[in-house]
Design a protein around this nucleic acid. Structure first.
Lengths: 240, 240
DNA sequence: TCCTAATAGTGTTATTATGACACAAAGTAT
DNA sequence: ATACTTTGTGTCATAATAACACTATTAGGA
């Protein structure tokens, strides 16, 4: 007969370790970055890794992830969601480790982070200039996270979580372009946002070099959760 | 200093148990069903539960899930994807259990399943007639799976995994209606599929009561993975 | 002060996608 | 033959999209 949860003795089996890893995204100078830590010990000493750690027996997975996030960055109350769970045997040479990965979006340009860019141990990397030879399967996790962020951008308001509370339309557009990796049409983008009724004019203007940009904020009721704002410009068909 | 993966002693901490639970979807008489098992022992004796079990130390999560799936149904080579990982402390009264949930889509009407509908231990339930008081947090997992299936239906070819290899357009349409819970327009649905170029005419006809239906199969190159076939009829806006 | 560069923002139009619904086709049952 | 049932197509008004030309408002220098 098959072993099932029904006749399980909690002490009978070897158990894997469970960790949470948090892919932390932020903007720096308008470019999408990810926060990495440099390991000090075996395995993968000196290699860069996604911040993470073991789950305590009395905390939920999300609590563990938020704890790790706060330990690394000092921020809390940020957008976070579960990404995927990675559990290949052998992904950690020490023992069987199952990692529940999360990703977080933080308003880098608004909050003063505790992390120092000068430190050798913690650093922001642009997502297209990641260091080589990441620890464990973290390159895979990172790609997974970037793909997910990119695809969710097209049907959620996730991008808003990266921006300060008040922002201009050109800035929002630049984030979309940065993450999607393609140019968008200004007129169409603005129109879509106007029609979506997601934004609220603050009345303020932001001076820069040319014509000042109008500052907006999100209508509170719609920021939360994954309210659908679908932005996609259909690519030209190139089929036979 | 914070405890991190860097100075971890594998034997030092208490570890949670890790299970996989597999939400198994199938069609029976054109209705979406899910496979449940009835528990025999504490906790939740006699309650219905999602099939699942502990992950062995040397098998991947997906392997564990496929093993459970095959043990319950005898089928393999079916579509399966990871759903979400549930890990609230206290979700299992015995010990800390973290469950990696998967969902599988099987071609019920094609494969002869080992499970007997008469058995008291394993049974198919229509998704809108689930038994009461499911074990653990399985009701939550189930709702999660149904929501995911429903939303992925709109931008993937997942529905095709539930059908036999050859099928008619009306049958496909009925599945969409069943899962989405709303009526679709025949003409628009067929047109969308024709334009998508996903289907291949087998030349065969299926006799029933009225005009025979043409049988199609999926073009192989596009079945795999999550090729995008977006079907959504925009709901009428009912905003203030 | 006036011109220019730079950036923000709007209008317009052709094309395509969508939703609604009428209609035609091809079988079975009587 | 005729009614009935189910499959499958045609049509058209409307909405969404992509492309692109255009106007607006500032700073800064001649």
């Amino acid at each position: 007969m098959t072993e099932t949860a029904e006749n399980y003795d909690a002490t009978k089996y070897e158990r894997p370790s469970v960790t949470v890893d948090v892919v932390i995204f932020g903007l720096r100078s308008g470019r999408l970055h990810v926060l990495m830590v440099q390991r000090k010990h075996w395995p993968y000493a000196d290699h860069w890794a996604i911040p993470g750690g073991f789950v305590n027996m009395d905390e939920s997975l999300e609590m563990a992830a938020r704890r790790e996030l706060e330990e690394e960055t000092g921020v809390h109350d940020v957008y976070m969601e579960q990404l995927y769970t990675f559990g290949e045997p052998g992904r950690d040479p020490r023992t069987r480790v199952i990692s529940v990965a999360y990703f977080a979006l933080i308003r880098t340009e608004e909050q003063a982070l505790q992390v120092s860019d000068e430190s050798n141990a913690v650093r922001w990397f642009p997502v297209d200039e990641l260091p080589k030879d990441l620890a464990f399967d973290h390159e895979k996790i990172l790609r997974f996270a970037i793909d997910r962020l990119r695809s969710k951008l097209e049907y959620t308001t996730l991008a808003f979580q990266l921006l300060p509370k008040e922002f201009s339309l050109p800035k929002l557009k630049r984030i979309y372009e940065e993450i999607l990796g393609e140019q968008l049409d200004k007129a169409n983008f603005y129109r879509k946002l106007r029609d979506s009724d997601l934004l609220e004019d603050t009345g303020k203007l932001l001076n820069s070099r040319g014509r000042p940009a109008r500052l907006y904020r999100f209508r509170d009721s719609r920021i939360e959760g994954d309210f659908v704002f679908r932005y996609r410009e259909a690519k030209k068909k190139d089929e036979g």
